[in-house]
Design a protein around this nucleic acid. Structure first.
Ligand SMILES: [Zn+2]
Ligand SMILES: [Zn+2]
Ligand SMILES: [Zn+2]
Ligand SMILES: [Zn+2]
Lengths: 165, 165
DNA sequence: GGTTGACTTGTTATTCTGTAACATGGGAAG
DNA sequence: CTTCCCATGTTACAGAATAACAAGTCAACC
């Protein structure tokens, strides 16, 4: 079983170089299917997000891009991030005003995020059951859910064991 | 049955003056229990949030406070809002960078929000089942949820019937 | 009464986050 | 070769939030 298949592998030690490479490959495959282009800025932005399983602020990414010779004005990074988000290669985390690479861009999905407040890693997990419950609760009040933000903050197993309460 | 007991009454026509008054009463009762004070700015801030079942940006509230003779600098409103949030009288909506009065401050609760994208009204709904699911999904990955943001955007019944798709 | 100390309100200034509007340049289509 | 779309870049601004300090209120205490 490849480590990439566990949706919460973000919290466990794993061959992250492979993880990162797979992220880029899947991104290219997906964009090819969609007829969109992974241009240099976009590619670099995705690489930066893929470096760790954590969320990064736009300006943090922007600094990195500037180091690599790209423009150093906010629109540069916001446009790249918007592109990645819209094409399912990255997600925005509302609680953190930050962005994270998608953990499994292979297929369409509306994720649920688990954010460890100790190590700052971010994982995506099984969303369907939670969203179902939410839709059901909303239906009871005649409300139709179109999109939902579901972000949990807490402690990952590794940090809990390490006693970083 | 008092209208205030339906957690999603925000979307239905109701005696809102009573609704508002009840909000203030419950707030005072709650603060008395906690030994905290509802000072003029705080009270006025809560009143403003209670005027409608929608979320307001901090600066929108600030303008209203300034009209009433309170300070017109950001810290004034942010402090009042922080106080209200911490004492369970208001909630912050991450998706909107905005705040809303709590719909039922009588008891402790971690709400789930329903945000109508057409009329902008915000309702709180039954949270427990959704949170249970979320905790369960997280547990499967050895993650302990401490707090969670759950915010749904969609259409309320009234707006759906009115065809405001 | 006077003094201390916690708390609240107020101000100035700054930081962080995000967007509008416009200029340029490189292809692909014609 | 020209046209047009799109991506990148810029300047300038808007919106959200906080840091740091000044001053007033009020009850507790001496
Ligand atoms: Zn990895
Ligand atoms: Zn952790
Ligand atoms: Zn009401
Ligand atoms: Zn509505």
């Amino acid at each position: 079983m490849a480590q990439g298949n566990d949706p919460a592998h973000a919290f466990a030690p794993h061959d992250h170089a492979a993880c990162q490479a797979r992220g880029l490959d899947e991104a290219e495959a997906r964009l090819a299917r969609q007829g969109a282009k992974l241009t240099p800025v976009r590619r670099r932005t995705l690489e930066i997000l893929l470096e760790a399983h954590r969320a990064m602020g736009a300006y943090e990414v922007l600094d990195r891009l500037a180091e690599d010779g790209f423009g150093k004005q906010p629109p540069v990074v916001y446009r790249a991030l918007e592109f990645l988000v819209q094409h399912g290669l990255a997600h925005r985390l509302q609680r953190l005003n930050a962005f994270a690479a998608c953990a499994h861009p292979g297929h369409e999905h509306a994720p649920v995020f688990l954010i460890c407040r100790s190590c700052n890693r971010v994982a995506e997990t099984e969303a369907a059951p939670v969203r179902d419950r939410l839709s059901k609760a909303a239906q009871a009040h005649d409300f139709t859910v179109e999109r939902a933000t579901i972000e949990a903050v807490g402690l990952c197993g590794t940090c809990a064991e390490a006693g970083r309460a």
